[in-house]
């Protein structure tokens, strides 16, 4: 019998956990009395919003690691975190917007929390655009690392936006400084849901890191082939080729 790789087991466990989350959210947890059924969106929206903040912190950690050690694996990690950050950031914005429609009667408002989260999403996009258009190699990676570190300044601003500005967005329900207004059943559901979503995020991050590493392997192999080819053909053959082109 073929043994399942660890990643397949991880994916299956995440899927199972997500199934449990569904049951908790839609069947088990009581309905919030003021907001009604749509409040159940909290169990998806809050974990992805936390992950969007977490992703920029991971980008900053990877960037600082790269700037200090100059090792490419830190850069791959920062790059993978930025790309997964785009996904969870987009999910946080979209799910928040869908939730806002029945509660605030608008899809979007320039509220402090929403606006700073949108800025975070643009920081991720800016980081990836810089990676795409900057010179290849270490110079581009260094520029992106600097952007990654500066971009992380937005994380505490988002977290404390409700304290810093007058905002329509509800206060924090978990984490430091939270008002702790959730019922124990709601808190448990949010915890299980967060574990499921965090596990899915970690899986995506690992997969994206592997892709980034493989891309680096392809570049390295291509370079070695070029070197081997130039050794085989020699300078005379190269000159002949140049002449034939001329």
């Amino acid at each position: 019998m073929r043994a399942f790789p660890a990643r397949t087991i991880w994916l299956a466990l995440t899927a199972g956990l997500m199934g449990l989350t569904l049951w908790l959210i839609f069947i088990w947890v009581p309905t919030e009395s003021n907001l009604g059924e749509v409040q159940r969106a909290l169990y998806f929206h809050v974990p992805v919003a936390i992950l969007a903040l977490g992703a920029i912190v991971l980008v900053a950690i990877g960037s600082v690691g790269f700037l200090i050690t100059n090792r490419p694996r830190w850069d791959w990690f920062a790059h993978a975190s930025a790309e997964t950050g785009v996904v969870v950031g987009a999910l946080a914005l979209i799910t928040g917007s869908i939730w806002a429609r029945p509660i605030w009667n608008v899809w979007w408002t320039w509220d402090a929390k929403l606006t700073t989260t949108l800025i975070l999403w643009f920081i991720f996009i800016g980081y990836l655009m810089l990676r795409a258009y900057a010179p290849p190699g270490r110079q581009g990676a260094r520029l992106a690392a600097i952007l990654g570190v500066i971009g992380a300044i937005d994380a505490p601003i988002i977290y404390y936006a409700a304290d810093l500005w007058r905002t329509a967005h509800p206060g924090r329900v978990t984490g430091p400084g939270a008002d702790g207004s959730l019922e124990s059943e709601m808190l448990l559901t949010l915890l299980v849901s967060s574990i499921a979503v965090f596990s899915a995020f970690a899986y995506m991050l690992v997969e994206r890191y592997r892709v980034r590493k493989s891309e680096a392997d392809v570049i390295e192999l291509g370079r070695r082939i070029q070197m081997a080819h130039s050794e085989v053909s020699g300078p005379a053959t190269g000159a002949l080729k140049a002449m034939s082109k001329g």
Binding site: G36, E37, V38, R40, A41, H45, L91, I98, W99, P102
Partner: peptide, 12 residues
């Protein structure tokens, strides 16, 4: 609101 909830869930 259940429709909005469904949309949030599907999008995620």
């Amino acid at each position: 609101n259940l429709g909005y909830l469904f949309a949030v869930y599907i999008v995620t």
